[in-house]
Write a protein that binds this DNA or RNA. Sequence first.
DNA 1: GTCTATAGGCGGATAGAC
DNA 2: GTCTATCCGCCTATAGAC
Lengths: 190, 190
Amino acid sequence: MDTYQKILTCAAELFAEKGFEAVSMRDIASQAGMRAPSLYNHFRDKQSLYQATLHEVFSQHNTALIGVLTSTDDPHGKLQQVVHISLLKMAEEPNFRLLLQRELLQNERDRLQFLAEEVMADTCHQLQAILQLINPQADHHFVITSLMGHLLFHVQIAQMRDFLPGVEDKHADLAYLSQQIYDSLLKSLK
Amino acid sequence: MDTYQKILTCAAELFAEKGFEAVSMRDIASQAGMRAPSLYNHFRDKQSLYQATLHEVFSQHNTALIGVLTSTDDPHGKLQQVVHISLLKMAEEPNFRLLLQRELLQNERDRLQFLAEEVMADTCHQLQAILQLINPQADHHFVITSLMGHLLFHVQIAQMRDFLPGVEDKHADLAYLSQQIYDSLLKSLK
DNA sequence: GTCTATAGGCGGATAGAC
DNA sequence: GTCTATCCGCCTATAGAC
C-alpha cells in the first residue's frame, strides 16, 4: 500500500471514531508513521484530506453493495441479502456508518446533497426497482428511508444494548437482527 | 430567565448544531451576551457546561413524553400519540435529537450507559408495557429500537429529502409520516 | 518525499481589578 | 458576577534543509 492510501486508511479510522474537529493532522500523521507536515505533500489541507477520506470510504461501500443489488436473485432474495450484507459489513467495518452518520448531522445543504447524490441515490434507485416488483402500490421512498434508518440504528445501538431494558441474547445475533429487519420491511410493504 | 439558564440555552443550541469540539467557550459566551471568563463563574469548565446542557435538554424532553405515556388512552391511542408528539417535538426543537445522536456516536461505555439509563430507559419501560397489551408475543426490545430509529432517522433525513429519489409532497407532511410510522410499527407487532 | 523549525492564530482556563 | 489582560498549549500550515 502506498503512502497516499496508508494516510487515507488512518484518516478514515480516526475521523470515523472522533469526528473531523477532534482529530488533528498530528494524530493522523502519527497513526500513519510520519510527521504532520508530510501529509501536506499528499493533500492540500485538512479539509481536502477529509473529503478524500469520505470519497474513498463511501465509494468502496457502494461498489460492495452493487454486487448484491445487480445479482440475478428474485426480489425477495435480493432484499434479504441487502439487509444481511449491510448489517455484516457495518458491524465489522464501522467507518462507513460512522462517517455517514457524522455527515448527516451537518446541516449544510451542499454536503447533504453530496451524501444524497453520491452515496445514497444509486442504492435507492436499485432498491426502488426491487420494491416495485414486490408491491407497486407501496410508498417506496418511505420504505427505503425506513430500511436505512433500521440498518444504521440497530448497528449503532449494539454497543449500548446491554444497558437497555428487555434485551436478550438473540439481539446480539446479527442473523436474527437481519431476519427481523427483513420481516418488518416486508410487512410494511404489504 | 437568569444567567445560568441563559447560558444553558445558548450552549444547547451551539453544541447541538456544531458538536462539542467545534464550539468554543467564546462562542457560547458571545451568544449569551457576555465574555468567556464569565462562564466560569457558573460552570467549572467546558465539560461541566456540556454535561449540564445534556442533562437539561434530555430531562426536559423526557418529562414532556411522560405526560403522553401515562395518559389514560388505550394502548393503540397512546402509541399513536407517542409517535406523533415525538415527531412534532423533534421537528420544531431539534436540539434533543441532535445532542442525542451526537452522544450516540461516542463509543465510550459510560456515556452510552448514561444515555441508556437516564434518557431512554424510562420511555422504553413505558413503551414495553403498552406493547405488552397489544401483543405479548412480540419482540418488544426490537420493536422499540426500531421505533426510535424510525423517529430519529425520518426527522434527520427531512433536510435532504429533496435530493432523494421517489420523494413526493406528502413526505414533507409530519402527519403523514407519523401515520406511516405508526402503521409499520403495528404491522411489525403482529 | 520526509524532516525540523517555526510562524501565526485560536483554544481553555486563570488572575485580579472593579 | 463580569470584565480585561494574559498564560500556555495545541492547532493548521509553510519554509527550507536534506
